[in-house]
Design a protein around this nucleic acid. Structure first.
Lengths: 209, 209
DNA sequence: GCTACTTTGAAACATATGTGAATCCAGTGT
DNA sequence: ACACTGGATTCACATATGTTTCAAAGTAGC
């Protein structure tokens, strides 16, 4: 999946909360994530935070890079991250590699799913949807073991991705655990019945993930 | 802004509720919108609806077209629409024109703004944000007259874009009108004080729109 | 093994927004 | 003029989710 490492590329390491790209700055590189999780997010002036994308191992972390040249979302590591750094040099917003369009289109697809989630779904549906998506992505990356996978997010991270509060994420997860549709302790997710969780997520038969 | 019309291109007309692209089908064309408004949206099985993008005159209505080859969002006309139809022929998801990446990146930017809105903003903030964005886009398209522009959306459309109910959109708009930050009757929007509305929208100093 | 810090769990209470149902109103066609 | 229609407006009421606070349980550094 990953392309070869070119001479100018380099391995990069990040600790939790370190920036891969800062808000209102021109991005200097993009990253192939080898290990660890990162996210794209925006902050409001009063501290409210919304995660707009999650990057898992194997993902290409594309700088979203409009004509203005500066990012409007910050990209920050959620765990320790090991990645291949691919400098942008003096590349212009119009210069994108073949395949970039496809990747971006898929980001839009995923974001549309998130918009539906945030705009129209209940807390249970949002959580089911998110956890299902993450499990599925981990599985595709070869990082799921049977019905379980690592999920190194705090409940606060999950809240910021789903547009809920941490308190409500906690009580909703409790309820879902009680119903037996998922287990989630110490950064480890187990989904006993994929189908049941999918039903809870209010996904259509054709919806991706 | 619009490219020339090639021989295989053609003018297309749509009435409200007509599809420019259907869910779960391969898109057959994309459109340069000359006149009228359209939107991309998804429906849940119980009828809940979320608008994921709005297309205004001058916009290029890109089919979001992942590797699977089929759209997951429908594109439908909200008003009468006149557009240049550009057939995709046998173009593959990987074949995208130069500049497509940039346009898609800008869509992601805008969608990120919507995610923040839906996930973290109050009803007043969401409405201020949306109306401001639409006014600004109309202005850039040369379709604003001073502080006013056409805004041919029903309150139900606005609700489906902001993740609120039509009833709540109505009462929130009333309140905003009462405070004098906007006027909006019969599909016509007037913003007496852009700055005031921008403050209400909880946008950062660098946020686009 | 002790301290400091982060994350999870819980309870009581507050409120923004949703629901359901009428009514009103403007535009359109007959 | 009249009836239809989709949209806007209102009202009374319901509830999912937010807020605040605190305690318990992990986790990391030393």
């Amino acid at each position: 999946m990953l392309s070869q490492i070119a001479p100018s590329d380099d391995l990069a390491f990040f600790r939790p909360h370190q920036f891969l790209a800062r808000e209102n700055e021109r991005p200097e590189a993009y990253y192939d994530i080898l290990e660890g999780w990162a996210c794209r997010h925006r902050l409001l002036s009063d501290g409210r935070r919304q995660i707009t994308a999650l990057y898992l191992p194997g993902d290409l972390c594309d700088p979203i890079w409009p004509l203005s040249g500066v990012c409007h979302d910050a990209v920050v590591a959620l765990t320790n991250v090991r990645a291949v750094r691919r400098p942008l040099g003096d590349m212009q917003p119009l210069d994108r590699s073949r395949g970039a369009g496809l990747r971006l289109a898929e980001s839009i697809e995923r974001q549309s799913g998130w918009l539906v989630s945030l705009g129209r779904k209940t807390a249970v549906e949002r959580l089911a949807h998110l956890l299902l998506e993450l499990f599925e992505r981990m599985r595709r990356a070869g990082l799921a073991y049977g019905q379980q996978c690592a999920l190194p997010l705090t409940q606060t991270d999950i809240a910021d991705a789903t547009g809920l509060t941490a308190v409500h994420v906690n009580r909703t997860l409790q309820a879902m655990r009680a119903k037996g549709v998922l287990e989630f302790h110490s950064k480890w997710l187990r989904i006993p019945d994929l189908g049941a969780l999918r039903d809870l997520a209010a996904l259509g038969p054709h919806d991706p993930v």
